[in-house]
């Protein structure tokens, strides 16, 4: 995966450029073009895209709802014809403008998902921390990030133990379907939060015992260095963003 070798700062810049481009373009077709371009670049760089479906699948229902709701409520756009009625249902009119707004939201969500996915699978935590240090983020913030990440597996294991203990006392855990899963979470939260608070107390002692806040910072263990290919990609990102901004504000394209 070539994306992994890219300097983390270039990836952050690319991510920010996608965000800006996506927000200035309000035409779903324009954003769909951006999405296609992003997917093409990722596939070209050898990024494994199979894991993407698992992230998109649970969102499909939400995306569908957004499109339907905005179709009925999102009229009032400036472009002529946007208040064109498509059909009526339950006494409410669905407008073309509303549909376009909804579709645009949908494509924006997909863009965000793809960009986030590509960033997270190609960026080790260490890289992220090095970027935070480079950006002069306060050092407690970096500690916060690493500690939180370190506790994801621990908390997961604790959750499993609590669920087993409840089942051993006769709890009928229904963890199928979105509602069942939500209901099953509630009785787990109390013991999980209680044990997490006790864990946090121990953690504070452990961190202090290792000299946390002994100085105003920490020895940096990693250097970031831009290479030629990083600069090429960065230039590409700048040109792309420039083009989108020119199309949008120079030519007035990409608006509905």
């Amino acid at each position: 995966m070539r994306l992994q070798r890219l300097d983390v700062r270039v990836k952050v810049a690319g991510f920010a450029a996608i965000l800006v481009a996506m927000l200035v373009v309000t035409d779903p077709l324009g954003n769909a073009l951006l999405l296609g371009l992003l997917l093409g670049v990722l596939a070209g760089a050898g990024t494994p895209l199979r894991g993407l479906w698992a992230m998109v699948q649970p969102l499909l229902l939400v995306i569908g709802l957004i499109v339907v709701v905005s179709m009925f409520t999102g009229a009032g756009l400036s472009r002529p014809g946007s208040d064109l009625a498509l059909f009526r249902a339950w006494g409410v009119e669905a407008s073309l403008g509303g549909l376009l707004v909804g579709l645009n939201f949908a494509v924006r969500i997909l863009l965000m998902v793809v960009a986030t996915y590509a960033f997270t699978i190609s960026t080790p935590v260490d890289d992220l921390l090095a970027a935070l240090a480079w950006a002069r983020a306060p050092y407690w913030f970096s500690i916060l990030v690493t500690t939180a990440l370190a506790f994801v597996p621990t908390t997961g294991r604790r959750k499993d133990l609590i669920v087993e203990a409840q089942r051993a006392r006769g709890a009928r855990v229904r963890d199928t379907g979105p509602v069942g899963r939500l209901v099953a979470v509630v009785p787990i939260m109390v013991p999980l939060i209680t044990t997490s608070i006790m864990l946090a107390d121990n953690l504070a002692v452990a961190m202090t015992s290792r000299g946390y806040r002994a100085s105003r910072g920490m020895t940096s263990m990693r250097d970031l260095r831009l290479r030629a290919c990083d600069l090429v990609v960065l230039a590409g990102v700048a040109i792309l963003l420039g083009t989108v901004l020119w199309l949008r504000f120079g030519l007035g394209l990409g608006v509905v």
């Binding site: 935590v125 121990n202 953690l203 452990a206 290792r210 806040r213 920490m218």
Partner: peptide, 29 residues
């Protein structure tokens, strides 16, 4: 060193964890 090993590990990898202490004292890399 505390009783519960889980609540004392502060790094993702072993090397990162052991380095946590000396780095706080700005020991050179």
């Amino acid at each position: 060193v505390l009783q519960d090993p889980e609540s004392q590990l502060l790094g993702r990898t072993v090397a990162e964890d052991v380095a946590f202490g000396p780095r706080n004292y700005l020991v050179p890399r």
